[in-house]
């Protein structure tokens, strides 16, 4: 009676289930952006010429640089998971720091791109925008909405990775318990995948 020990008391860990949960969330994210890509497809079909020449307003060079920045940040976060799993916590922290710096680089470039569009009055509701053809309006509306929603995901992903760094420093995420970093990485890769589609569809259609 007295030496009864409850086996496996406390919180049970199930990394597999954690990962499944993350993926289920990512599927809803895919469908969220999928809906927007659906809107894009239909309006592009209805206004193919206006979409075509509107895309010339976008800066291909900045778009390409941002694509490379995001792909590289995907690499650093993937490497940080390998580093943590191998027990190299310092390297892992540095690689996550690099990822967050790439996220900031992406946002700074995006800021300059958006500023140029604001100066030309292309934001929905601005003087130039309201005089445009319906197809052009739709192009810039979707451009701002989709890159804006994507930018929001970049911010959330960066904050999430910062929090995971904090958890690694507090030894709550360790080489033996790294599912939080893996799931954070999954989110970051999803942000990258969405940009992989946004980039050609908005910048490269001419």
């Amino acid at each position: 009676m007295s030496n009864f020990v409850l086996v496996n008391s406390g919180h049970n860990r199930d990394d597999e289930a954690s990962k499944f949960g993350m993926w289920l969330f990512l599927f809803t994210e895919l469908l969220l952006f999928g809906g927007l890509f659906l809107v894009y497809t239909i309006y592009r079909y209805l206004n193919s010429e206006t979409f075509l020449y509107s895309s010339y307003e976008l800066n291909v060079l900045l778009g390409t640089v941002n694509t490379i920045v995001l792909l590289t940040s995907s690499l650093t976060v993937a490497l940080s998971i390998t580093a943590l799993q191998k027990g190299n916590i310092r390297l892992s922290l540095w690689l996550i720091t690099a990822t967050i710096l790439f996220a900031l680089t992406f946002l700074v470039i995006k800021y300059f791109e958006w500023s140029a569009k604001f100066e030309h009055g292309l934001f929905p509701g601005m003087d130039h925008y309201i005089q445009m053809l319906p197809g052009e309006k739709m192009f810039f509306f979707l451009y701002f909405f989709m890159t804006g929603l994507h930018g929001l995901h970049v911010i959330i992903g960066g904050v999430l990775l910062g929090y995971i760094m904090w958890e690694i420093k507090k030894k709550k995420v360790t080489p033996d318990n790294n599912i939080f970093l893996e799931n954070g990485g999954l989110y970051w890769h999803l942000v990258d995948i969405i940009w992989i589609f946004l980039f050609p569809l908005f910048y490269l259609i001419h």
Binding site: S74, L75, H189, I196, F197, F199, P200
Partner: peptide, 13 residues
């Protein structure tokens, strides 16, 4: 784009 997405999902993810 699809090729890149598949590579990211298969290997990075």
């Amino acid at each position: 784009a699809v090729t890149k997405a598949v590579v990211v999902a298969n290997y990075f993810m």
